[in-house]
Every structure is written in structure tokens, then in C-alpha cells.
Computed example of a mutant assay.
Amino acid sequence: MQNKPDVTTFVPFTVVLRDGREVLVREIAEDDKVGLMAAFSKLSADARYARFMAAMRQLPEAMLEQATHPSAEREFALVALATKEKGSSIVGGARYAAAPGNDVCEFAVTVVDDWHGIGLASRLLSALIDIARRRGYRCMEGYVLSSNTAMRRLARRLGFAEVPCPDDATLRVVTLAL
């Protein structure tokens, strides 16, 4: 698989969500560490578990470093910034990663709790799908907790197929041909 970075230039865009709030969606930057830590602290324990599939009280430094420095060849990450609040703050993010030489990428989406249900996850995942498609990936997949009905419903709305995870009854695998 050949990646074509010149074809995938990401242009930040503004989104007005269903409740009228506005976010700026842009590529993650090296200096987003503080913003990511602040966003992580706003996630409920349930939201953290749904995203990381582990109980986490804080974001480990290594994970934070990796999040803000995606590998250009096989990863891409977006953040959504609330622009109308006091200062801009990260309220959501989406990313994909792929094994080297693979044309399948795995996605993840996280939205701060008080921004759920207004279309932010849908906009982030839709943008990520478009970027992965333009970068030459043929398939996007995600591992979703069986209990995470909101994410499973979103994946179905965006065209993902869903099957039980063969290795773990608590997970579902959602897959989209790009």
C-alpha cells in the first residue's frame, strides 16, 4: 500500500452541532498534551472504560506522547476544540492506526461526556473515514464493548458491519469497507 501524503492534506473545519455549539476540527498537534489531559479529566469512569477498555485514573505519559505524535505513515488523529467557551478546549478526538504495510486501520473516537448525543462523534468518525479512504486504506475496523450501544449504533449508521469478537465475548468488531 502506498500512502500519498500530498493527497491527504487535512484542512481544519468548523462544525455547528445539533445543540448549536461549535467546534473546530483539526489535526492533533504536539502542543495538545495539556488539552488532552484536561479532556481526559472530564471523562467519566464509564467513558474512560468504554474508550480504553481498562479502568484508568490518568492518562499515562507514554500514551499521551504517542497520541500527540502519530506516525505519519500509519496513523492520523483529529481533535475537536470548543471555540466559543472561555478559551478553546479539546472536547473530542478520533484517530486511526494501522500496522506497517497493512491496508486495514483501526479507529477510536472519544467525546467528553457533556458533548455526547449532539453529533460530534459522528462528524469526527466521518472525517476520519474520509481521510483513511484518501490515504489508500481499504478497510476500517474498531473493537467496541458490547455494552457501548451508542458507539455500536453510530457505527451501524455510518455503514459498519458488526460481528462478535471471536476472542472476547464482551467485544464487538465493527468493520467498514473503504
Rank of each mutant, 00 (worst) to 15 (best):
M1G: 13
Q2K: 06
N3C: 02
D6W: 01
D6K: 13
D6L: 07
V7E: 15
T8Q: 04
T8W: 12
T8P: 00
V11W: 00
F13R: 15
R18L: 15
D19V: 09
L24N: 10
R26G: 00
R26H: 14
E30F: 13
D31I: 13
K33W: 07
G35Y: 14
M37T: 11
A38D: 04
A39L: 14
F40Y: 02
K42R: 14
L43T: 04
S44C: 05
A45C: 07
A47W: 00
R48F: 00
R48M: 08
A50Q: 06
M53D: 07
A54S: 14
A54T: 00
A54L: 14
R57D: 15
L59M: 02
E61H: 03
A62N: 14
L64H: 12
E65T: 10
A67H: 04
T68C: 13
P70N: 11
P70H: 04
A72V: 05
E73T: 01
E75T: 07
F76R: 01
F76Q: 11
A77F: 11
A82I: 07
A82P: 10
T83W: 07
G87T: 12
G87M: 07
G87I: 03
S88P: 07
I90S: 04
I90D: 00
G93D: 15
G93M: 01
A94N: 12
A99R: 00
N102Y: 12
V104I: 13
V104Q: 11
A108Y: 00
V109F: 03
V109E: 14
V111R: 05
D113V: 05
W115R: 00
H116N: 02
H116P: 14
H116I: 04
G117S: 12
I118A: 03
I118D: 03
A121V: 12
S122Y: 01
R123L: 13
S126N: 05
S126Y: 12
L128I: 06
I131N: 13
A132Y: 03
A132R: 06
R133C: 07
R134P: 09
R134G: 00
R135E: 08
Y137Q: 10
R138F: 11
C139E: 14
C139V: 06
M140A: 10
L145C: 11
L145K: 15
L145M: 13
A150L: 14
A150H: 11
A150F: 06
R152I: 15
R153P: 03
R153T: 08
A155R: 00
R156E: 15
R157N: 03
L158Y: 08
L158G: 14
G159Q: 13
G159L: 15
P164R: 02
C165R: 05
C165Y: 05
P166D: 13
P166C: 02
D167N: 08
D167L: 07
D168C: 14
D168G: 03
T170I: 10
R172G: 05
V173P: 00
L176V: 02
A177N: 01
L178Q: 08
